[in-house]
Structure formats: structure tokens, C-alpha cells
Amino acid sequence: MALPPYASPAEKLWFWAFRVLCGLVLLFLITPVLVIIPLSFSSGSFLTYPLPGFSLRWYTEIFDPSGPWLAALKNSLIVAPLATLLAMALGTLAAVGLNRADFPGKGMLLALLISPMVVPLVIVAVGMYFFFAQVGLLNSYSGLVLAHTVLGVPFVVITVNATLQGFDFNQVRAGASLGASPMRVFFTVVLPQILPGVVSGGLFAFATSFDEVVVALFIASPTERTLPIQMFSGIRENISPAIAAMATILILLSTLLLVTMELLRRRSERLKGSVE
């Protein structure tokens, strides 16, 4: 969108005003993410600039083996991968089923599978709180894993569904006619082709569980306190550079997620390109 040489002064002004506005919006988006990082290396205990000096004391604090941060991180690292695996398994199966044949009520079914994404989290949280209290899953890791599976599964369904749009199911027939069992066909023919969708859905599900506060606040006891709950109460009670240190680690993690997603996207684009 370069400016043509014959542009009038008004057009030039508009062009540059537009660019400046976009620059400011981008600055608005990235500033908060960048501002918090240096503060985590502060030697003082206030989250203000200029920094009094450089130190790693807040990192030693969050990685203190007897401290609350490491315990919370450990809990999140138990819950998130389990919820992600469950969501990937259930979501992939369902997406394959949805694309395998037409059957009545398919639209409604898809709407049901995606609905956890749109229902306000507080409502999910209160509903599960009462339900888990009745069935004895309140304050348990299993309850938390099930809840986070529900919240993550729509992402898997959507991404796998999207990858399957270009999938030719005649390959399944071909595999079966050559004598392969349905399981073998799935793992050797279907799965390798839809893997980018499965993995990116899984990453979304992981990120969801790793960042989920509301439901966890309702259904988890202090023993199952996850990282987001620890962050939440830290921000609420006493916002210290320890939060900035944990935030920096989380930003690192999200950069990693972003890069992985980008690589997956490129790969699937390349695959599509080679077919066409």
C-alpha cells in the first residue's frame, strides 16, 4: 500500500495520519507485554521505573522449593497436559466423526461441542461447582482436569474440523480395501495428515488450561491451587516483582506457543500448496 507519486497533499496527510494511528495501536498492544519484563529483574520491591538496580532475587523467590509459586506451577503442569491430552483425544474423534458422514442434527451437535467456548466462564464455574460437590469431585485434581477438558475441547474440534475440510475420505476406503484395520488406517493414513490441526488445537487447549482462573477459583482447594490462581491472588493482595518474574516466564512460554503455531501454519500451507 505505497503512496502513489501523484498523491495530493490531503491524501499524503491522510496516509501518514493513518500510519501513525496504526503505529500507536501496535504500541498499545505490545507495550504492556514488554514493560513488565525489565521489572522482574529489579532489586527493589516496587514495580516502578527507574529500577533501583539489577538482581535475580525475584526469580530465586518464585523458584523457592518451599514457596507457593513452584507448587502452583507444579499443579498447573499436572492439570494442563492431562486436560490437553483428553481434549485432543475426544475432540479429534468427534471431528473425524462429524466429517465422516452426514446425519440428522449434525449442525446442532457441532453447536453443542463448541458451546463451552461461548458460555460465560462464571456460569460454567457455578454449574460445575454444584455438580462436582454432588459427585465428590470438588477440590480434586480429577475435577479440575475434567473442567479444563471441557473448556479446551472446542478448540480441538474447530481446528481438526478445519484440517479435515481438505481430507479425502476415499483414502480410508483404500486403506481398508488393502486389509488394514480401522485403527491402523486412522494412525497411518488419517492422523499424519490432520496432525497440524490436532496439535494446534491442543496448544489452544493447553493455553486455555494454563491461563484459566474463574473455574479453578470455584472448584479447587488450596492444595490444587494452579498458577493462574496464584497469580490472581498475588495481583489482588500484594503485587510484587515476583509476579513480574512469573509473568516474564509466561511471556516466554507464549512466545514459544506463537512460534510453534506459526511453524504449523506454514507447514500446512506448504502441504496444501504441494497438493494443488
Partner: peptide
């Protein structure tokens, strides 16, 4: 990057 960054962060 902000999109993938934790809401709490």
C-alpha cells in the same frame, strides 16, 4: 504475542 500472553499477565 499479546493474544497468546496470559490474561493475568
Amino acid at each position: 504475542l499479546p493474544f497468546w500472553t496470559s490474561l493475568l499477565v
